[in-house]
Design a protein around this nucleic acid. Structure first.
Lengths: 331, 331
DNA sequence: TTTATTATTGGCAGCGCTGCCAATTCATGG
DNA sequence: CCATGAATTGGCAGCGCTGCCAATAATAAA
């Protein structure tokens, strides 16, 4: 037997408290004026009826929406979880509510999901990066909500952008390895068609090497998503073709950790025989027997700043949060 | 200059198409009957005006809500990301939309967040585990939405429950280690006050050892959340106090990986000198030089099944998805 | 005491859409 | 050509809440 009753409405609370509807609304939102006595009666009626305001109705009636939509490539990549985590705290304080959808690194899906998100009339929509289909861009521009592009600032923002330069990160990584004396440098990565930010790092890394007369000595690209397992396998394949490499740049820390495991398993000395460099600066890198050399990206801060800009209704702008090169023990 | 116009309404589309509002509504939802010609005119008007239906209004007007609320302890723990990932696919197909909030393993926060989620009148609310404050339970029972408790089935469900037995997992782990001949077994874990599922595993693991005349030879509990780094530090501290341990059960794979790293760094032979056993069955365990011995939990499946039950409006029930003991090379 | 102000209230028209029902049109059979 | 039932269609009352404005009560000033 289902004992769940239809939940009470504002009108019922008003009736029970013997006041008008608007008075209840004012008390509950602590907005406008009302006497202490009235407040008491309203709150008591609310308690008695177990009233829970209906935000769907409230949102429809008022102009502003408390929803903030996130359209992210993946949830299993800790990067996006960190991003969300950073944003949520700030949003919550401002009484905002996060809704989200996962594109799986698919631009077509992003297009569909953006449209479906817009149907909720969110105050803002947060997207990863700049690469959207033409149709997505049109849809976004026609929408009357703020647009925030995250984790990448190498491009022209539609409205707000918060993150760091993937091009600069790629260059910085190349610079570091060259400076350390490595010359036969390889690359191990994952699907560059989908992860456009990784593609930018890859391109800039290679360009920087070429400009310095080194060039990429070899590369192995796993066609699927990144993972520790695939990093291990990919490095193994790369070394089979190019046994003489002295350093490898990985598309991210997960792949790099896989590479590290391969070396451990094969008895390859790090960094003496092979240097390893990652990207992201995940916590796990700090706990490795040899701390991972990598670039730490401000993921949580990106989410936090983005949320703050939305809450503060900041004018269109691009915020560069930079990144930090971590000199570990693997390169 | 802000060129964003107020988005069009159903009424405007109806006017532009020269038909009634309900006709537009029927065409857009592909529900009820209308002629092919009418359909054309409506869709063309929609295209012309760039109309995006307002789901806030639609939800308010119709009875059922397309929202499904998730109240989870953490986002940075990949376990919950897997769970969400599993659920989202199914929900999306059924035109549902996920909204979520993070409790940070805090029951008081859960209480507040549940109340705030209920204000969105979701079709269902998904929670991790059974441990809720009394007030949370009251609030939930008074709500007219489905309740799904996830990742734990050791208790009495409020409505639906999907997951596996943490008690059984703890016992299975103990049984495995005993069977393999380990006798001086320690435990390394994280904050048991907050992570009640880990606490259940810990209790059952210890009980199983005691029942077999072994007992827990020592334990080290990190007061904060789990992480690879803390796992490494905790094992180091535990071994300092109990150098004679021959196996250690970790609260999860992250902590176990930290322990593994500690052993690598200290030259402790695995599993000869010390065996390591984890919990969760993360992918990373498979890529380690020695695959991690652990228990693989069906996280994505839990999310998927939970979503399916909601979509299918299944009657109250508890679904045990079980778990799989992975015999790796660390124990 | 009277009037000017200010603090509190309640009434009610929407917000944009869906559901119900009556009205209209179309197709068929006699 | 007209009746009959099916296929289409439009009108409109809400869904539960907020915002605006007028009405009323309370308090201060004259």
């Amino acid at each position: 037997m289902d004992t769940r009753q239809q939940s009470a409405t504002l009108a019922q609370v008003a009736e029970a408290a013997g006041v008008g509807e608007s008075t209840v609304s004012r008390v509950l939102r602590n907005h406008g004026s009302f006497s202490a006595k009235t407040r008491e009666r309203v709150l008591s009626a609310v308690e008695r009826l177990g009233y829970v305001p209906n935000r769907i109705a409230g949102t429809l009636a008022s102009s502003g929406s408390p929803l903030v939509a996130f359209v992210i490539p993946s949830l299993s990549n800790i990067v996006f979880a960190d991003l969300l985590g950073g944003a949520i705290g700030t949003l919550e304080q401002a009484q905002h509510q996060a809704v989200f959808a996962v594109t799986d690194y698919d631009a077509e899906r992003e297009e569909m999901l953006v449209a479906s998100m817009l149907a909720w009339r969110p105050a803002a929509i947060m997207l990863a990066g700049y690469e959207h289909t033409e149709r997505t861009v049109r849809t976004l521009q026609a929408a009357s909500c703020r647009i925030v592009e995250l984790l990448d600032i190498d491009g022209t923002a539609l409205d707000l952008a918060v993150g760091f330069s993937n091009h600069a990160a790629g260059r910085a990584s190349a610079g570091f390895l060259l400076e350390r004396g490595y010359r036969r440098i390889g690359y191990v990565g994952h699907d560059l068609m989908r992860d456009t930010r990784a593609a930018k790092r890859h391109a800039s890394f290679r360009d920087a090497l070429v400009e310095n007369g080194a060039g990429l000595a070899g590369e192995e690209i796993h066609p699927g998503r990144s993972s520790v397992e695939e990093g291990r396998g990919a490095l193994s394949r790369l070394l089979a073709r190019h046994p003489d490499l002295d350093a490898v740049y990985f598309s991210n820390d997960d792949m790099a950790l896989g590479g590290y495991f391969h070396c451990l398993a094969q008895g390859i000395a790090i960094p003496g025989q092979l240097a390893i460099f990652g990207y992201n600066g995940l916590d796990i890198g700090k706990a490795m027997p040899q701390p991972l050399s990598t670039i730490r990206t401000p993921r949580a801060a990106t989410g936090e700043v983005a949320a703050k800009l939305i809450v503060d209704k900041a004018p269109p702008q691009t915020v560069d949060l930079g990144f930090e090169l971590i000199t570990g023990a693997t390169a």
